[in-house]
Design a protein around this nucleic acid. Structure first.
Length: 231
DNA sequence: AACTACCTCAACCGCGATAGC
DNA sequence: AGCTATCGCGGTTGAGGTAGT
């Protein structure tokens, strides 16, 4: 792309969108600069790529990030850190931008409101484990929020930690889910998954998310902020 | 109705990685 | 090996929308 050529910036028009979609249908993705020229767009290849990936490509999910997706993001963030594209790979229909925006506008904002220094990894990790994650889990197992029906189930290509429609034993699945991350977030191998879900639901999980805290006897952090689960 | 504050998210920027010559 | 073009990622910005006063 010639440097002298005046590049258009800012919001895309529907006409530009149509041109880009049409060109991609003919040439496929990639070689974005040539694609932009072919489409007759005065846009950088970079801009075209971003518009396609974050807005135009098929099967993009719109609307709010669901509690299930939020839970997934938290768990995957323990695994990958701020690698948004890696996290987004596990969220069908969501772009890395969606994940990043959610993280900054919701998670980090809430952490700051609770005077948690998001740049302090220990403090922030503590916030995630003791404040954010429990509230998400509570939303999933709260009696007022029944487990997902087959119609709104989300499938996850690389991880299997959303309860199946056949299995309404949500809290059990969540603990299984955590166990699948033991290598990544250093959960002790020496724990047992609760078998009496009624016990855990009724004794440890108030129905109001804001009241929820994981009890220390079940889950705690050691000095290195590694996550430990206790029987 | 008008103004302000806050929120959301599309889009840009800079940089490092990679490919091709 | 070195240069250039391109791609992809994470961080950041700001326009537009919405809620509150």
């Amino acid at each position: 792309m010639e440097a002298s050529m005046e590049m258009k910036k800012g919001p895309w028009s529907s006409d530009e969108d149509s041109k880009l979609i049409h060109s991609i249908s003919l040439l496929g993705q990639g070689r974005w600069d040539s694609l932009s020229r072919f489409a007759g767009l005065k846009r950088s290849g970079k801009s075209c790529r971003l518009r396609w990936l974050n807005y135009l490509r098929p099967n993009l999910r719109r609307g709010k990030i669901t509690p299930q997706e939020q839970l997934l993001i938290i768990l995957l963030h323990f695994r990958f850190g701020n690698r948004w594209s890696k996290i987004a790979e596990n969220l069908p229909g969501r772009s890395d931008n969606d994940v990043k925006n959610y993280w900054r506008t919701k998670v980090q904002k809430h952490a700051k409101e609770l005077h948690c220094d998001v740049n302090n990894s220990h403090q922030f990790r503590h916030f995630l484990l003791y404040q954010w994650l429990p509230s998400l889990l509570a939303q999933q197992i709260s009696p007022t929020t029944p487990p997902s029906s087959p119609n709104n189930m989300m499938t996850c290509p690389n991880a299997d930690f959303i309860s199946s429609p056949e299995d309404n034993n949500t809290s059990y699945n969540i603990w299984n889910n955590l166990s699948s991350f033991e290598d990544e977030i250093n959960i002790s191998h020496d724990y047992s998954i609760p078998t009496d879900d009624e016990y855990y639901c009724h004794n440890y999980w108030p129905t109001t998310p804001s009241q929820v805290l994981l009890p220390d006897e079940m889950l705690c952090l050691d000095d290195d902020m590694d996550l430990w689960l206790f029987p």
